[in-house]
Nucleic acid binder design. Structure first.
Length: 451
RNA sequence: GCUCCGGUGGUGUAGUCCGGACAAGCAUAUCGGCCUUUCGAGCCGACGACCUGGGUCCAAAUCCCGGCCGGAGCACCA
């Protein structure tokens, strides 16, 4: 099995499906999982991606057994090309770009198509040594000019790009097209099974010719359907532009759809795995269901998430006639062994502005794990401590709570107070009646995970 | 337009290859009840789907044909 991203940036949620599914197949049936970095277009490479991609995979728990980089293998591709030319399956075309396209569309052979192998090999060397400049020639795989899909007819395998490659510099000027290098690598790397999106269907058809000309055994191909990710920013080039312009604070900005952004928000690797296993390998196109994704994550995270009280848009209230109470709240309702949050309360607490304005006159409500209060006109009065009836229960923060913000993936921010006991906590917590957040870096700000 | 591939509840899927125990399972969402000193937690219940028309067959979600709808590809990108 293999996965083959191009190094234009770190992995995003769209990549995780192929990563997880390939990994899962190897786990279940054995074999190797090869990570192949496809950097055959020097114009589309972010040097940082060479290390970000393996990092992201490691975080996801994907066990890569072998890694290869295509830019290390150009000599192999050139030799395969020479072999195919020798056998008359490939030629070098010197037609102008437009003319080549037009002829192919009309199923007309180009003037170079029937050149003898010697001529093609000679021209190919001229491409390699720089005699022919960018745009001057391409190496083409001979297929079937009457193939119903024009892009499968005599497809281009190598072109000249006069640009500096971030990894190999200007050592090469003739770059293979993805369709070619993939076919060669899939064979020499011994791939038996290939899982890829059905956007690759045409490429599979193109690559077929390479396997047949060489008499190689083709891997089994599975093409899964495309997934839509509504509202998630995935386009690497767009994200990159946003980072450069300062709109985002980096690849892990929580507004982005990168794996690192999801990690920062508090999603767990296991969530990705369970979600994609559940989705399977159908050929049907589907919509990414953030609802289900969140629910999986919630299930994973909830048993260990500490509970804290966060009041948004706080209002300080004075509770009349309230005795001093020592409040004791569990850090986790089903795990008393995690400990408690204890506060002395005498007459003053903060509640959220939203809760405050929702209390109607005369209503009795419960401050969680504290006491009853009742609203009498403009006053809030103490109304007993023992649980006597079921009323609405709201959460509160004691005096000494600190200012706190939650950053949300839509770019918005909720401000309020959080109870003191949360100080120093790192990881995912449930803010009672609010949602789960990740205390990733600091005490006074956390990232919103999900409700 | 051309080539190929698909269509199961709101969403994600199981079942389709090899027709029968599928009056279609699971999850999520929604609604209701119970429980609970948070909850979007737990428990119980409800809700809700085989795109459509024809054919084959004792029997069709499953096989065949047409239609409709959707997607992917049609680069000197990967």
């Amino acid at each position: 099995m293999r996965m083959a991203p191009s190094p234009s940036g770190p992995l995003h949620v769209g990549h995780t499906r192929m990563a997880i599914l390939n990994d899962e197949y190897v786990k279940r049936y054995g074999g190797d999982l090869i990570l192949r970095i496809e950097d055959t277009n020097p114009k589309n490479i972010d040097p940082d991606a060479y290390h970000m991609i393996p990092e992201d995979l490691e975080w996801l728990g994907v066990n890569v057994t072998k890694m290869v980089i295509q830019s290390d293998r150009f000599d192999l591709y050139y030799n395969e090309a020479r072999k195919l030319m020798q056998d008359g399956h490939m030629y070098v075309c010197t037609c102008p770009r437009e003319e080549f396209k037009k002829k192919r569309l009309e199923s007309i052979p180009c003037k170079d198509r029937d050149n003898p192998p010697e001529k093609n090999l000679e021209l190919f060397e001229k491409m390699l040594d720089g005699t022919i400049k960018e745009g001057g020639a391409v190496a083409v795989v001979k297929t079937d000019l009457r193939h119903p899909n024009p892009s499968v007819r005599d497809w281009i395998a190598f072109r000249i790009i006069e640009a500096r490659h971030p990894k190999v510099g200007d050592r090469y000027r003739v770059y293979p097209m993805m369709s070619f290098s993939v076919a060669v690598d899939d064979h020499y790397l011994g791939l038996t099974h290939v899982l890829r999106g059905k956007d690759q269907l045409t490429n599979t058809d193109k690559q077929r010719y390479i396997f047949e000309y060489n008499g190689w055994k083709k891997p089994y191909y599975y093409h899964y359907g495309m997934i839509k990710f509504p509202g998630i920013k995935l386009k690497t080039s767009v994200m990159k532009k946003g980072i450069q312009s300062g709109q985002y604070d980096g690849w892990s900005d929580i507004r982005l759809g990168t794996v690192r952004a999801f990690a920062r928000r508090g999603y767990r690797p296991e969530t990705f795995r369970r979600y994609w296993i559940n989705s399977g390998l159908r050929e049907i196109d589907a919509v990414f269901s953030i609802e289900i994704f969140d629910s999986i994550n919630r299930e994973i995270v909830d048993p260990t998430a500490y509970r804290f009280s966060f009041v948004k848009d706080p209002v300080r209230i004075e509770i009349r006639n309230m005795p001093e109470i020592k409040a004791k709240l569990p850090l986790h309702p089903t795990h008393p062994e995690y400990g408690f949050r204890e506060y002395d309360v005498n007459g003053h607490v903060y509640i959220s502005g939203q809760d405050f304005s929702a209390i109607s006159d005369g209503e009795r409500i419960r401050l969680k794990d504290l006491c009853y209060i009742r609203k009498n006109g403009d006053n809030i009065v103490y109304d007993g401590i023992d649980m006597t009836e079921r009323t609405r229960i709201i959460n509160w923060c004691p005096e000494g709570s600190r200012e706190f913000s939650v950053l949300k993936p839509d770019g918005s921010k909720d401000n309020g107070l959080i109870e003191p006991k949360s100080s120093g906590y790192r990881g995912i917590a449930q803010l009672e009646r609010y949602g789960y957040v990740n205390f990733a870096e600091k005490d006074d700000v956390a990232y919103f995970t999900h409700a």
